[in-house]
Amino acid sequence: MTMSTDPWVWLAALLSLFIFSYLYKDNPLFKFAEHLFTGLSVGYLIVIYYNNIVRSYLLNPVLADHRWVLLVPFAIGLLYLFRFIPKLSHLMLIPIAITLGIWNGIALPLTIEADIIRQMQGTMINTSMFRNPWDPYTGLAVGILIAVGVICTITYFFFSREHKGALKVSAHIGIWFVMIGFGASFGYTVMARVSLLIGRLQFMFTEWIHLIK
């Protein structure tokens, strides 16, 4: 068994061990690694933001290509800084309003299209589903299951009527669908968390201690 001679691999491996030490209990080594990560990521983000955003979308086009019009949105963006001057802090609302307005304008019709209309289309049972009834995506069996699930779940989250009679039955079926969904989600999450552990151990056993080839 050999070990890595790369100091960066050693650093990464030791920091991973510091984090793992939290499993036993909270301790200064864990705190050190956590704070180091927080500080580093802030520093890294500043560099990335400057290089990839400020320089390529503002400085270069203005200074090299003289696209002066870009200074207008830049000035509007600067209004955010008025948040530190209480008397003028209302000026901050201008960029917020512009951002919200633009995003809502883009988002609303597209969300209705992608998340509601297209999904409704997928939920409706139709004659094309009879062609291949057991297909896991487009078959009739799955189609019925999805349609019943969607309608019953919607009734569970309907707050304008008491859950009585038919509504109660439907809401009850709905909550079963929700719980089965949560079960699936739980199982997937377990796999996700174990994968993260495996990923770290793979790094330690392949790059740090050469245990696995």
């Binding site: 999904q119 487009t138 799955v142 699936a184 989600s185 997937y188 796999m191 996700a192």
Partner: peptide
């Protein structure tokens, strides 16, 4: 994997 179940509907 955490997010996987949320996106199956878009495959359908």
């Amino acid at each position: 994997a955490v997010m996987a179940p949320d996106f199956y509907q878009f495959l359908q």
